[in-house]
């Protein structure tokens, strides 16, 4: 069943040289319990897409057009107080840096208890009990003692576990996880991802996992959406996109992941850099870097078409058909 729909979202930041479009018309759907990886280079618009869903785009940025629908209900135009009730309760969020995401002057217990009392209407005692359960759930040893400790007394990985508990404790149906493991040690990353995946599976929580790391997607996600310069270039099931990427940009991304067991394989890099958001060229944004670009690519913008297990926006794909 469809949980979240983005319908032609445009996110704009006004600047003194005119508006900058960070997301230029993005549509995608997410089913309940599904884990969707949102990949792309820095500046591709993936984090802003996440912020658009939670209604937390920093002013003066705004959603210029399009709709965000949760279970069929529009949420992009809700009054601030109504949206607040959705945040945490319906849509949770996990940020990049566990070191700065926790309030340094309150114990982790207090932060968990406050969150649950706000959304679940529990009394202090019940909330405290559940807070202990949550700490145990996210794998923190001696949860009862740890509850009354301050964030700085936890290690980085432990803090990210607390962050996950905080994001999940009001039992949201959707979690936006923005680079949740980037700031962590490589050794801890896999554990945190596995934990996130297990908890979401158990609770039937859907996840949008924003990352630039294809390896993380391969391990965690069901579906993957690839963004380039504010637009979706390809979306599909993880297995298909990884094994058989359709868009030249996705292919480039795949070639840049080191493959285990294949020592001879060379890592290739995509030549060039993503174009700036200002003064976009008329054609496909990837055309200047695309090894297979044809004349049409430089003049006409490709529209996403159904292909494989999802969609792809590329003229070449149409040609091949």
């Amino acid at each position: 069943m469809t949980l979240l729909e983005l319908d032609n979202i445009v996110v704009e930041f006004p600047t003194r040289r005119g508006p900058l479009e960070a997301v230029k018309g993005l549509s995608l759907e997410l089913n309940e319990g599904q884990i969707l990886g949102l990949v792309g280079e820095s500046g591709a618009g993936k984090s802003i897409t996440g912020a658009a869903i939670t209604g937390l785009i920093e002013p003066p940025g705004l959603i210029r057009s399009g709709q965000v629908r949760l279970r069929g209900q529009r949420i992009d135009n809700l009054a601030p107080e109504k949206m607040r009730r959705i945040r945490g309760k319906e849509i949770g969020a996990i940020f990049q840096d566990p070191l700065t995401s926790l309030n340094p002057v309150y114990t982790v217990g207090e932060q968990l208890i406050d969150t649950m009392r706000v959304h679940l209407g529990l009394d202090h005692k019940a909330a405290r009990k559940r807070a202990i359960d949550w700490l145990a759930e996210v794998g923190i040893p001696a949860p009862e003692a740890r509850l009354d400790q301050y964030p700085h007394q936890f290690s980085g990985g432990m803090r990210q576990r607390v962050v996950i508990a905080l994001a999940l404790c009001a039992e949201p149906k959707l979690i936006i996880a923005d680079e949740p493991t980037t700031a962590l040690d490589v050794s801890v990353q896999a554990q945190i991802l596995a934990l996130l995946k297990r908890l979401c599976r158990e609770n039937g929580t859907a996840v949008i996992l924003v990352t630039h790391d294809m390896g993380v997607i391969a391990e965690t996600a069901d579906r993957v959406a690839v963004m380039y310069a504010g637009r979706l270039v390809e979306i599909g099931d993880v297995a298909q996109v990884i094994q058989d990427p359709l868009h030249p940009y996705t292919k480039g991304l795949m070639n840049s992941i080191p493959q285990i067991g294949n020592r001879d394989a060379r890592l290739t890099q995509i030549e060039g850099a993503m174009p700036g958001l200002r003064n976009p060229a008329p054609g496909c944004a990837f055309a200047p870097r695309c090894p297979q670009a044809i004349d049409t690519c430089r003049t006409l913008r490709p529209i996403p078409v159904d292909a494989g297990s999802g969609q792809v926006a590329c003229h070449l794909f149409g040609e091949a058909q």
Binding site: T15, S42, I48
Partner: peptide, 19 residues
């Protein structure tokens, strides 16, 4: 957003005369 705001800032910053 992580890379976007600094970009805006540096564009804003570059032009003291304007400000």
């Amino acid at each position: 957003m992580s890379t976007f705001m600094p970009m805006l800032y540096s564009a804003w910053d570059s032009d003291i005369a304007y400000s």
